[in-house]
C-alpha cells in the first residue's frame, strides 16, 4: 500500500493505555524521543496494539506545526 503521508517512522510500542473511547500509545522511534499517538480504543483493539509491537507512526506534513523561539 502506498500512502501520501510524508512522515512515517518505524518504532516499537512502549506502552498502551486505554481510557474509555481513546487509547494512548507511546512509540519509541529510533534517534527520536517517544511519540504519543491518541487513537480510538476500537483501532487499538483491531490492530491488537501492545507493548513490544513493531509499528510505524504516520502523520501528514500539513499537520505539523513549526515553532521557533524569538521569531
Amino acid at each position: 500500500m502506498k500512502i501520501s503521508a510524508r512522515n512515517m517512522f518505524s518504532g516499537r510500542i512502549v506502552r498502551v493505555e486505554r481510557d474509555g473511547a481513546l487509547a494512548r500509545v507511546w512509540v519509541s522511534v529510533e534517534n527520536v524521543e517517544e511519540v504519543t499517538a491518541l487513537v480510538t480504543s476500537e483501532a487499538a483493539r483491531e490492530l491488537e496494539l501492545k507493548e513490544g509491537d513493531k509499528v510505524e507512526v504516520v502523520f501528514k506534513a500539513t499537520e505539523v506545526i513549526v515553532a521557533k523561539d524569538g521569531g
Binding site: 500509545v25 487513537v39 490492530l47 496494539l49 510505524e56 504516520v58 499537520e63
Partner: peptide, 17 residues
C-alpha cells in the same frame, strides 16, 4: 534554524503489519 516541531497526538496514526 533551531526549531520545535509540534504534532497533535490525535493526528498521529499507527500502522502495523
Amino acid at each position: 534554524d533551531d526549531v520545535k516541531v509540534i504534532i497533535k497526538a490525535t493526528e498521529v496514526m499507527i500502522s502495523k503489519e
